[in-house]
């Protein structure tokens, strides 16, 4: 079989903001409270009565030019041939440089097991299963598959809609493998570079704000 290249497209038009991806991920990987591999951002835009609510599901972007990989002093991070950026738990010393370098807040540090982030559910890929977030998504907003296989759901979706998909935070220059369409232009500002998704961003007081939340 040909070497797969795993990619994801997030069709935000189909997202209902339900957090199923985030919870499926936390159950799958036993991610502790306060840390996230996958998180959904909310942004309320406009003034009454013309108000819209925007969602943005995010995860590791599996960058082609991954800054986490470049800064890792113990060379624990690699980009594999299947396109997935993976962390070697044995080589990681929890120094945190990777988390600080990530523009997408995708990496959290466990003092027990090292750096951790989305790896497209590699344990599931190994058993021919879709990532947990993709499988559960009620709106089919997360489109995943092998970009090398023209019959994959991802490839077919991109043939039809590919021109409309772009990375978020393109100015970071990391060439993400996860692309988006339909998202509000400003909502990505809620993601703070260099720190894992702040759980306080979802507190309702912060829905209408693009600034990082103050705690408490």
């Amino acid at each position: 079989m040909a070497q797969p290249h795993w990619k994801m497209a997030v069709d935000v038009n189909r997202c209902i903001g339900c957090h199923a991806c985030s919870v499926a991920c936390k159950v799958e990987h036993d991610v502790p409270l306060g840390s996230f591999r996958t998180k959904v951002y909310y942004y309320d835009e406009g003034q009454y009565p013309k108000v819209k609510r925007h969602f943005l599901p995010t995860m590791c972007m599996q960058c082609e030019d991954a800054p986490c990989l470049k800064v890792c002093p113990t060379k624990a991070i690699r980009k594999d041939a299947d396109g997935v950026v993976r962390i070697d738990e044995q080589k990681c010393d929890s120094n945190g440089a990777c988390a600080a370098a990530c523009p997408y807040g995708a990496i959290w540090i466990s003092t027990e097991t090292g750096a951790d982030k989305c790896d497209f559910c590699s344990n599931r890929l190994a058993n021919k299963m879709q990532p947990a977030c993709v499988e559960t998504c009620p709106g089919d907003a997360l489109v995943f598959g092998d970009a090398n296989d023209p019959d994959s759901r991802y490839s077919k979706y991109m043939v039809q809609h590919g021109k409309e998909f772009t990375p978020i935070k393109p100015e970071a220059g990391t060439k993400p493998s996860v692309l988006f369409r339909g998202q509000n232009a400003d909502i990505e500002k809620k993601i703070v570079a260099g720190q894992n998704h702040d759980p306080h961003t979802y507190e309702i007081e912060n829905w209408a704000s693009l600034k990082p939340p103050g705690k408490g």
Binding site: C18, H19, A20, S22, V23, A24, V27, E28, A132, E135, T136, C137, P138, D140
Partner: peptide, 25 residues
């Protein structure tokens, strides 16, 4: 350890919401 939607179910198929995913808890 984990749940998914039952694709035989005509209503939800593979999909589950956050509450469904939390069934394990």
């Amino acid at each position: 350890v984990k749940v998914a939607g039952n694709p035989n179910d005509p209503n939800n198929g593979f999909s589950l919401c956050a509450k469904g995913q939390a069934s394990v808890l």
